[in-house]
Write a protein that binds this DNA or RNA. Structure first.
Length: 430
RNA sequence: GGAUCGGUGGCCGAGUGGUCGAAGGCGCACGCCUGGAAAGUGUGUAGGCGGGAGACCGUCUCCAGGGUUCGAAUCCCUGUCGAUCCGCCA
């Protein structure tokens, strides 16, 4: 959702920003609708003002006992009614046209992100760790001897179908340990507020964060209308839906560990082996609610929170800033953090940290009252994974694998495994 | 699932047909009081949209949508959300 006044003030800048997304100029048609809309509003309100004035005088006429005037005014108000209704309908129609148009357009990309067509044009901005050298050919996570028994895709397929997994034993334990580790890091070292949220939400919330109306195909809905969240961004961000906050309340920084559900409708055939892409997975998600002037710094801060998790786990990663062609519709700037997976011999996305500006805040009507007074302003929202647990599990397993099929586990996780340090080739924790 | 009661400003809460954008309180802002603070005290304090250079003016908003009426926060209908009790259940 865009601010019509910003477009009015500087249509050229608006078109220039959209053109970076490969879109045709929109401002002239937007402004034409806006002008028509304002003319209709003015007409409707003028008619309404006349009717209101007459209605007010009706009572006075009655009080004076001026029956002739009373009847005349009554008739006048009655006549105006139809005209007002018609003008109002026309004004509403123009307003709806404008809203639909503004809602349907993607967010404006941030000035400092690169132009580009697709993911190949993303730009690396940070890299940590060396590409590990193995004295043997590293395998994918599900091929590691010590992992095979604890990562059961066949039983999961029986239970639920493809793109599900049943974890058991030491793998399930490691999976749980990762979630605990991440939450502790974020709450105790990064200052985020731990939150446990619903995973079923009202449709309205999916509009608030922008999953709807365009991307309903990607998510699941229950028979009675709830949506299963594709990410805790939905619940955490919508905490401030409809609120007017005191400025002193900001910044607000949340973290939650939740299940996430995605239909993966558009990714048939991609990443079908292993647990890289599942219909149901767990993720630790961070969301910040900040003043607009703080959003760029907050974006960097959140990126570092996610990076810190990977560093503590001894993983190699790189951070890229998405180019205009790869940027999500609702976002102004996104950092993807990609972890090195030896089994795939590639970097794969493990976290995505995004700055939405006021795009979501406008949809949610989430504002704050400036401390120095003045009109309420829209907040800025940011979200980022900190990080995807299933993918992190993959990374830990593939990077820790040994030639004998065992897995050495990162020191940071040892306390969460009651001192256990490795998975044996037979799949035992020891 | 059954029954009942509700939805009013940033928050709480009065208000059952016009004088209501709406008492009172909280919160917040500024002032007084104070050595300084607390307490006390005074004043102010909704949002959206439109017009206007501006002062300011108009219009809408008491969950949403319809209806009754010259006139609706108030009456009627529908929807929606919430609470409580009962039943069922982890």
């Amino acid at each position: 959702m865009h601010d019509i006044r910003t477009i009015r003030d500087n249509p050229a800048a608006f078109d220039a920003a959209l053109s970076r997304r490969g879109l045709e100029p929109q401002s002239s048609s937007i402004l034409a609708i806006d002008e028509a809309r304002r003319a209709k509003i003015l007409a409707a309100e003028t008619a309404q003002a006349e009717a209101n004035k007459a209605a007010k005088e009706v009572g006075a006429a009655k009080g004076r006992g001026d029956d002739a005037e009373f009847e005349r005014l009554r008739a006048l108000v009655g006549e105006k009614k139809a005209e007002i209704a018609r003008l109002n309908d026309e004004a509403k129609a123009e307003d709806a046209r404008l809203t639909d148009l503004l809602m349907g357009l993607p967010n404006l990309p941030h000035d400092d992100i690169p132009d580009g067509a697709d993911e190949n044009d993303n730009v690396e901005i940070h890299q940590h760790g060396a590409i590990p050298n193995f004295a043997f050919d590293p395998v994918e996570h599900f091929e590691i001897a010590g992992v095979k028994d604890g990562m059961d895709f066949e039983t999961a397929a029986k239970l639920s179908g493809s793109r599900f997994v049943l974890l058991s034993g030491s793998v399930a334990r490691l999976h749980r340990a990762l979630a605990q580790f991440m939450l502790d890091m974020h709450t105790e070292e990064h200052g985020l507020t731990e939150t446990a949220t619903p995973v079923l939400v009202r449709e309205e919330m999916m509009y608030g964060t922008g999953q709807l109306p365009k991307f309903g195909e990607d998510s699941y809905q229950t028979t009675n209308g709830w949506w299963l969240i594709p990410t805790a961004e939905v619940t955490l961000t919508n905490i401030v839906n409809g609120l007017t906050l005191e400025e002193s309340y900001l910044p607000r920084r949340y973290v939650a560990h939740t299940l996430c559900f995605r239909s993966e409708a558009g990714s048939a055939g991609r990443d079908t082996s292993g647990m890289l892409r599942q219909h149901q997975f767990e993720k630790v998600e961070m969301v910040s609610i900040v003043r607009p002037e703080d959003s760029a710094a907050e974006h960097q801060r959140m990126t570092e929170c996610a990076q810190n998790i990977l560093e503590k786990l001894g993983l190699t990663y790189r951070t890229v800033v998405l180019c205009t062609g790869d940027l999500g519709a609702g976002m102004r700037k996104t950092h993807d953090i990609e972890v090195w997976l030896p089994g795939q011999n590639a970097y794969r996305e493990i976290s995505s940290v995004s700055l939405a500006g006021d795009y979501q805040a406008r949809r949610m009507n989430a504002r704050y009252k400036p401390a120095e007074g003045g009109k309420p302003q829209f907040v800025n929202t940011l979200n980022g994974s900190g990080v995807a647990i299933g993918r992190c599990l993959i990374a830990v397993l593939e990077n820790g694998q040994q030639e004998d099929g065992s897995v050495d586990l990162p020191t940071a996780l040892h306390p969460y495994l009651r001192g256990k340090t490795r998975i044996t080739p037979a799949g035992e924790l020891e």
